[in-house]
Write a protein that binds this DNA or RNA. Structure first.
Length: 269
DNA sequence: TATCAGGCCCTAG
DNA sequence: CTAGGGCCTGAT
């Protein structure tokens, strides 16, 4: 068990932020997730977080995964005090963190996310994992499924993918798997690219448009200058930033602020 | 029953 | 470059 204190960490907000679809609440103040083929349970009371793993595993995997080295309080403190909307949004979602997730997993997840809702996205991904992911057992004896490999998804028929509830996105998934298997899309190459390069490369994929590409850049490659524009963001941009969002001021923190705005617009009463 | 959910592709003009 | 129709499906 590893304990960490952090004021800007909320497992619940991370779970609900819609950047990871394989993390869920599985008890009172308890959360379960699989990522990069690993399984983790964590619990939280106030600012105290308990990671159910060894110190070695925490140092090797989860510290980076949860972006623990980034000071989110500092980023929030840098918000223009005159921008009350952004200040309120950031305060509302101050426990959100931009995770360091797997590239392949994010490509598939955000292909599925288009014109879709979070609940159904989770169900689709869950089915893909159950049917095409490798069965594994955690150190604590919990059975789970790893995310399906490109090869496993390339072997699935279009009908099989439809049966996972993917709908018209099935053909996007199938082609993405084929591209990666045939080397037309080189994941390790994309990992080394900068934002512009990675984005351009991702846009070559059938079914990947600007919004999905930016989500992949932000959540898998941690390119925090990426600023995904979805229906919520567009709505807020029109209402709160008629003269444009101040990207010059926020630079590489723009993508993080996007998450506060998105989360606030999606969840505020 | 119609609409919508963190869009994208394709075709016209 | 912009506009609009079509697309799977489950929830409300």
């Amino acid at each position: 068990m590893v304990t960490v204190r952090n004021d800007n960490f909320s497992a619940q907000q991370i779970c609900m932020s819609g950047q990871c679809f394989r993390m869920e609440q599985c008890g009172e103040n308890k959360y379960c997730l699989t990522a990069g083929g690993n399984y983790l349970e964590l619990s939280q009371q106030e600012d105290l977080i308990l990671f159910d793993c060894t110190q070695e595993e925490y140092d090797k995997i989860w510290n980076d995964y949860f972006d623990m080295k980034t000071d989110y309080a500092k980023i929030i403190a840098g918000i223009d005090p005159a921008d009350s909307y952004l200040a309120v949004a950031a305060e509302y979602g101050k426990g959100i963190r931009i995770l360091h997730q797997d590239l392949w997993e994010m490509i598939i997840s955000f292909l599925i996310s288009q014109q879709n809702n979070i609940k159904r996205i989770r169900r689709c991904i869950g089915l893909l994992c159950e049917r095409y992911g490798e069965k594994r057992v955690s150190a604590g004896g919990i059975r789970y499924f790893a995310f399906p490999t490109p090869g496993a998804l390339a072997d699935a028929s279009l009908d099989d993918l439809y049966a996972c509830g993917l709908g018209y996105r099935s053909k996007y998934i199938a082609q993405a798997a084929d591209r990666v298997c045939h080397g037309e899309t080189d994941l390790s190459q994309i990992r080394m690219m900068d934002y512009e390069g990675a984005r351009r490369e991702l846009l070559q994929m059938y079914g990947v448009g600007t919004k999905v590409a930016d989500c992949i850049c932000l959540f898998a490659l941690h390119q925090t200058d990426a600023f995904p524009r979805d229906t919520h963001i567009n709505k807020v941009m029109a209402a709160q930033y008629p003269d444009g969002f101040p990207f010059e001021r926020y630079g590489n923190n723009s993508g993080i602020l996007q998450q506060y705005i998105f989360y606030y617009d999606l969840n505020k009463k």
